[in-house]
Amino acid sequence: MKNIAFGQYYPAHSPLHAMDARMKVILSVLYIVAAFLCKNVLAFGALLVSAAVLLILSRIPARIVLRSLRPLFFIMLFTAVLNLFFATGTSVLVSFWRITIYVEGVYSAVFMLVRIIVLIFGTSIFLTYTTTPIALTDAIESLLSPLRLIRFPAHEFAMMMSIALRFIPTLMEETSKIMNAQKARGVDFSSGGLVKRAKALVPILIPLIVSSVRRADELAMAMECRCYRGGKGRTKMKVSHLRIGDFAALACMIAFGATLLYLNHRGIGYTM
């Protein structure tokens, strides 16, 4: 329970930690686009190198970031296997029984795998590991604020998001507490059939829902007591500013995208 990496900010001093969160949101979107631009071995190679560079820049131990890949292991495996067996092409690599594996299949399997890994790496380094949840929601509020013109409640949206993020660890802690309490009364989560296991969840879920409702009520009351009235006229204690470094990072990202496009034309081997 305590090892779940989701939303886990990793405190460190690095250029990525120091960047403006708004720029990090923009960069991570651009990075996702970049990952989908890649079409051949050279471009994917450059993508892998860029992920490694990001990792070094962030000063986060590699095993911490690698941990974020673990929950998606089966999706990655599934994607790779699907691509391996079902991609068709012209040059046959092996053929047995009714299965034919093409060279193109191997390529696309590897490419997809690299793409998924780099996507997770990139977004988790930019957004979760180097940005505190508060900075992240502030950034999203700021980026969405032009939409206020069409009456989109940007502040309320960001507030809802930050409350949700804030309470994920609280709820996980609560869940493990309640699980422990019911285990102490002899609930067994790890044996028995499907029905028995589902039934064992009732003593967990009911107290959890009750306490979530209670917590929401208390939070609403506390916000009310501090005269919270939505985002109108609300100022910030910490106003973040875009600095030269942020724009330099943006320039690097654009240059990186252009490089990928260029590499796509230096065709070596298979092109997607």
Binding site: K177, I178, N180, A181, Q182, K183, A184, R185, G186, D188, V202, P203, I206, P207, V210, S211
Partner: peptide, 29 residues
């Protein structure tokens, strides 16, 4: 599980773990 029946633990703020429809059923859990 047998150990847990022999060493009964009441956690902090145990009132948040009640879930049955009646007190009787909860004590009997």
């Amino acid at each position: 599980r047998d150990i847990r029946f022999r060493v009964g633990l009441v956690m902090q703020y145990p009132e948040y773990q009640l879930f049955e429809e009646t007190i009787r059923a909860d004590i009997a859990f």
